Computed example of a mutant assay.
Amino acid sequence: MWCDEMMALWVPIAVYWVVCSFYEVLMRLQLHALEKYRLHSPNDRDRRNKVSFIKVVVMVAVQHMIQFVFGYFLLDVQHPSVREVNHYMAITRTTRRLGAYLGLTNANHIAWLWHHAVVPFIQFFLAMCYIDTHQYFLHRLGHTSKFMYKHFHSLHHRLYVPYAFGALYNHVVEGFMLDTLGAGIAYELTGMSPKMGMTLFTFSNIKTINDHCGYNFPWDPLNLIFKNNGAYHDIHHQPYGIKTNFAQPFFTFWDRLFNTEFDQTAKRSVKPN
């Protein structure tokens, strides 16, 4: 049986390949009912992209291998019984404090809710905010620095027509710094459990795929919840929007704060480096 730490390593990677394969099959089938939600035509993908599908898949596989090795040394494997005892002790301490300071008779129920719902929610949200902050500023640096763009970030922008597998198509150094390291730091800073880390890494992968999937389905829950979706990020991959919409993968508040959100009314035209 897989321990939580090992699942946190391989589950997000497995989900990435499964979800990307689903979108790739969808694109190749060109189902008439779904083609109206496609952001670019099949011909555009073949004509405009400057890297082959095989090379994209290979580079993603390399990044995942690096991610797995990094995570293996990052995660501190604990025996399930030790983790269970530590969790029980934490709930007990919270129960005692609630009873001592607030005199609550149902302190144990509140403590259980605190550790099973409130704390994980706070950890997850803070981790999302950190990942967004980490990626926004590194991503923006990849465009404002000619050296960074030429030697690292320009590889990702060989995809003028994004598709699912290309979500993690990056230079290996940039992929590590942007995705692997950012998620690892978020995990460590928030002190979340390996199981919660698995959920965070998996959700982050799914959201990144959604941003590059090439479709803008109006019923997609991620499109309804997040403004930062496939249509939003697709603008960034076009010559007229390459200096805008740096935010990824969840929120857009950094783009709004630093005035780097694409202005549809301005119809700005910005050429890539």
Rank of each mutant, 00 (worst) to 15 (best):
A14S: 09
G71V: 01
R158E: 14
D179S: 14
K195N: 11
Y72W: 11
K243G: 08
S41I: 02
V58S: 10
M59T: 15
K150Q: 15
K55W: 14
H171S: 10
L113Y: 06
F250M: 04
F226A: 06
I110Y: 02
E24G: 08
H139Y: 07
N216Q: 12
I225A: 06
F124E: 08
V172N: 08
L31H: 10
R38Q: 12
G103E: 12
N228H: 05
Q238F: 02
T190M: 11
Y72M: 03
Y160N: 15
Y163P: 08
M192E: 04
L155A: 13
H143N: 06
K195R: 13
F203S: 06
P120W: 10
P221K: 11
M7W: 10
H212Q: 01
F258K: 06
Y101K: 08
F70P: 00
G166E: 03
N223A: 12
E174S: 12
A33F: 09
F70I: 13
D4I: 00
N210M: 11
Y169Q: 09
D211N: 15
A231E: 12
H143S: 06
Q30P: 02
C129S: 12
H40F: 12
K271S: 14
N49S: 08
F251T: 02
F147R: 10
G241E: 01
Q248I: 02
E84W: 09
V25H: 07
N43V: 10
D211I: 08
P80Y: 03
V15Q: 00
L159D: 10
S52K: 03
S21M: 02
T133M: 11
P42R: 05
V119T: 10
Q30C: 05
D234T: 13
A183E: 10
K227A: 11
K36M: 10
H109T: 15
V58D: 00
V19C: 05
F201K: 01
M192N: 09
Y163T: 07
L159Y: 01
Y232K: 03
L102F: 15
L189K: 02
E261P: 00
F68R: 01
K267N: 15
Y136E: 01
